[in-house]
Each structure stands twice: as structure tokens, then as C-alpha cells.
């Protein structure tokens, strides 16, 4: 895995993608999504990335996330920015299949060469986004997008992967999402850089806005950013321009205060650890498979004769000696 290099065909795809070719980008996303050996090789060849601003949109099912993403895409396009959109929907726990329906709300952008929309299924991940999303963001960034919008699956209180993947997290809620106590709970309510109460024409919008604002009055964001709470009606295109401006305001604030770079550094480190873990596990498992004594140890563990911890220690000791 570590010694291999990219085959010429895939290397050509990387070149084409860096030139802005949509088909090449699409193919590479598939490779990264499949998360095989080539995925690492491709991601290792992108050169410097990080230019694009990465925006996450999360919230419960039916909050209007796709419609918000659609409107935000229009705002970015009006400012001449190139947009990448990643929209996630759940995969079936039984068959692995998925119906990816977020694009249905974004058809007005389907013919725009400046917009690349990619639907992804979570492929078994439980954090609201597929585990490979970081790589896909990197690809879109490398292909020259200025803004990347990442829409999570409809989440509950605890699917928070988005905060590890983007620069600005928008949490979208709808009226009747609960009372003040609900707003105080840990999890989803803690990760917002911008709050949106969408479908704000519905009854209960005002009390939810008040509930969130009074909750925010009790907390202090470490970096001093005052989290805005906005009312929108994405369907009617009301309040979205303001949301767009607040997202950029958050970026400006982060760049000045240093919290932007701090967050990016955390994310890079997490991604590095994840990549290293994958490589090490792969290397170890290959060594185990090639060594009859270690393979027998794993078989005994599977049968319950020794514990998983004993087996892991045994394998770790033997393989690290071998690698020395």
C-alpha cells in the first residue's frame, strides 16, 4: 500500500481534475469514496489545498437544509464564486443502498458549469456524514472551487461529524423544535457558528428564536464570536442573503482571531491520525495474514480461546519487532 504509485490512468485524472475537468473530479470522488488503496494515493497528490471556504449545513430532517444550500449556492454564484456542493443522505443499514434526493431541491443549478453537486450516501457512518467526506472536500478544493457547501443527513442531537470537516457550521432548526431546556442540551446546539430558524413564517418561530438567543446569552464562545441567530424562509428566499453575509463574517472573524487556522490545524491533525491508523492497520493485517503463527493467534481469538486484547498485544509485539 505504501510503496505503490498511481497508475497512469488515475494520474491523468488527477491532472485533468486540477485543470477543472468535471468528469475527472467526479471519477476521483468515486475513488476516494471507495476508500481503497488508490484513495490515499490520489489525496497525496493534490498539492496545496485549503483555499476554499467550507460551510456545513446541519439540522434535523425536513429543516430545509437542501433548500438553504440551494439558495446559498445562488448567493455565491451571484458573487462570481465557484461552488462545490456535497449532500449526504443515509445509507440503508440492511442493504447499503440509498436514495439520494437532495439534488431535487437544486435543479436550478444543474446546468451551471460553475457548480458541482455531488450526492453521497453515509455508507454506514453514524456521524451524519460519510467518513470519506474530508477527502471529497479536499478534491473539490483542489479542483478550484471557492466555496464548498456540505449538507449533512438529517441529524438528531449527536451526529456531529460536520464540525470536524468545515470552517463554518450552520445549524438549521424549524419552529416547534422544542423549548428552552431543549436549547440548553449538549450536542447539536453547541456546534453552531450560525443558527438559523428556517420556515420562520410558521407558528412558534418567534419563541424558538428567543429560546436560542437566551441560551446563547448564558454561554461564552472561547474565541469571542457572538453566534448570530437568524430567521429564514429558504423556500421564499427570505433571510438567506443575510445568512450568506454572516457566514463570511464568521470567516473574517476567524481569520483575524486565529480561530479559523486553529480549527483547520485540528482537522488536519485528525485526518492525519485517521490516515495513519488506516495505513498501520492495513500493514499489520497484511503481515498477520502472511505469518502462520500470527494467523493462528487470530483464529484462536475468533474462537474465544484468548481475548481480543491478548491477541492484539501479541500481534502488535511480534509485528513491530519484525518491522524494526
Amino acid at each position: 500500500m505504501i510503496e505503490r504509485t498511481l497508475d497512469p490512468k488515475t494520474a491523468k485524472l488527477v491532472d485533468d481534475m486540477l485543470q477543472g475537468n468535471a468528469r475527472a473530479l467526479a471519477r476521483l470522488i468515486t475513488i476516494v469514496e471507495e476508500d481503497g488503496e488508490d484513495a490515499h494515493l490520489v489525496l497525496g497528490q493534490l498539492g496545496p489545498t485549503g483555499r476554499a471556504h467550507r460551510i456545513g449545513i446541519t439540522g434535523p430532517p425536513g429543516a430545509g437544509k437542501s433548500t438553504l444550500v440551494n439558495r446559498l449556492t445562488s448567493c455565491a454564484r451571484q458573487n462570481g464564486l465557484r461552488v462545490g456542493v456535497i449532500c449526504a443522505d443515509p445509507s440503508s443499514p440492511f442493504t447499503g443502498g440509498a436514495v439520494l434526493g437532495d439534488r431535487v431541491r437544486m435543479t436550478e443549478h444543474s446546468m451551471d458549469e460553475g457548480v458541482h453537486i455531488r450526492s453521497m450516501s453515509t455508507r454506514g457512518s453514524l456521524g451524519g456524514l460519510p467518513t470519506t467526506v474530508h477527502g471529497v472536500i479536499e478534491l473539490m478544493d483542489a479542483s478550484g472551487k471557492d466555496v464548498i457547501l456540505v449538507e449533512t443527513v438529517g441529524v438528531g442531537q449527536m451526529e456531529l461529524d460536520v464540525m470536524a470537516s468545515v470552517d463554518t457550521v450552520v445549524v438549521a432548526l424549524v419552529p416547534e423544535a422544542g423549548d428552552d431546556v431543549q436549547a440548553m442540551k449538549a450536542g447539536l446546539m453547541e456546534i453552531a457558528d450560525v443558527f438559523v430558524v428556517n420556515k420562520a413564517d410558521r407558528p412558534g418561530a418567534e419563541s424558538l428564536l428567543v429560546g436560542i438567543r437566551s441560551m446563547l446569552d448564558l454561554v461564552c464562545h472561547g474565541d469571542g464570536w457572538r453566534i448570530p441567530v437568524l430567521a429564514t424562509q429558504a423556500e421564499n428566499n427570505i433571510g438567506v442573503e443575510d445568512l450568506y453575509q454572516q457566514i463570511w463574517e464568521h470567516r473574517r472573524f476567524g481569520l483575524e482571531s486565529g480561530s479559523f487556522e486553529e480549527r483547520r490545524a485540528h482537522q488536519r491533525h485528525d485526518e492525519f491520525t485517521a490516515a495513519l491508523q488506516k495505513m498501520v492497520t492495513h500493514q499489520f493485517m497484511q503481515t498477520v495474514a502472511a505469518d502462520p503463527q500470527l494467523a493462528a493467534c487470530v483464529t484462536r481469538m475468533n474462537a474465544g480461546e484468548i481475548s481480543p486484547y491478548e491477541a492484539a498485544s501479541e500481534v502488535f509485539r511480534t509485528v513491530s519487532q519484525k518491522l524494526r
Binding site: A22, A26, I29, G96, A98, R103
Partner: peptide
């Protein structure tokens, strides 16, 4: 049915143009 067969379905629904369907297929690989 495709979902239940383990496939990922990018559902575009009604009132599409042929060009939009084709470009979507390319963008979505």
C-alpha cells in the same frame, strides 16, 4: 427497488431536461 438492491439512487424526479440528466450523471459519476 434499486435502493433495496444495495445501489445508490440519485433521484431527479420530474420535469427534467435531457441535458440536466446527462450533466448530473457526469457530475455524480
Amino acid at each position: 427497488a434499486f435502493r433495496d438492491a444495495g445501489m445508490e439512487v440519485i433521484y431527479l424526479g420530474r420535469y427534467q431536461t435531457a441535458e440536466a440528466v446527462a450533466k448530473t450523471a457526469v457530475d455524480e459519476d
